[in-house]
């Protein structure tokens, strides 16, 4: 079981728990504002953009080259940017805090 926290652009804090699936799906299923997941999680739409809070980066690891290429052209990209459809829920993510980019 991993606890995952989203902070939306309205500064709303949403704490969710899950054991499997992608972080994007978790956010969409719970109506987290700013995460649309248009492409269903295949890394094609960039509507699942989050910034990992710096102190949690060790939990998420880094983006693949394909993901980086997508992010590179996104507005307000930062070195902490991730497409959260590419983050699989696991114990390793427990406690992670994600700032929704949109």
């Amino acid at each position: 079981m991993a606890k995952i926290t989203f902070i939306t652009s309205d500064n709303e804090k949403i704490e969710l728990e899950a054991t499997s699936g992608s972080v994007m799906q978790l956010a969409v299923d719970n109506g987290v504002q700013g995460i649309d997941g248009d492409c269903g999680g295949v890394c094609s739409c960039a509507t699942c953009h989050v910034h990992v809070l710096p102190e949690h980066v060790s939990k998420t690891g880094t983006a693949s080259e394909i993901e980086q290429d997508m992010l590179e052209l996104d507005d307000n990209v930062s070195e902490y940017s991730r497409l959260c459809c590419q983050l699989d829920v696991s114990d390793a993510l427990d406690g992670v805090v994600l700032q929704v980019a949109k």
Partner: peptide
């Protein structure tokens, strides 16, 4: 079941 599929069939960016 292609997992990573960064296609642009629906366009990209502003006019997607």
């Amino acid at each position: 079941d292609r997992k990573l599929n960064p296609h642009v069939a629906f366009g990209f960016g502003t006019h997607n």
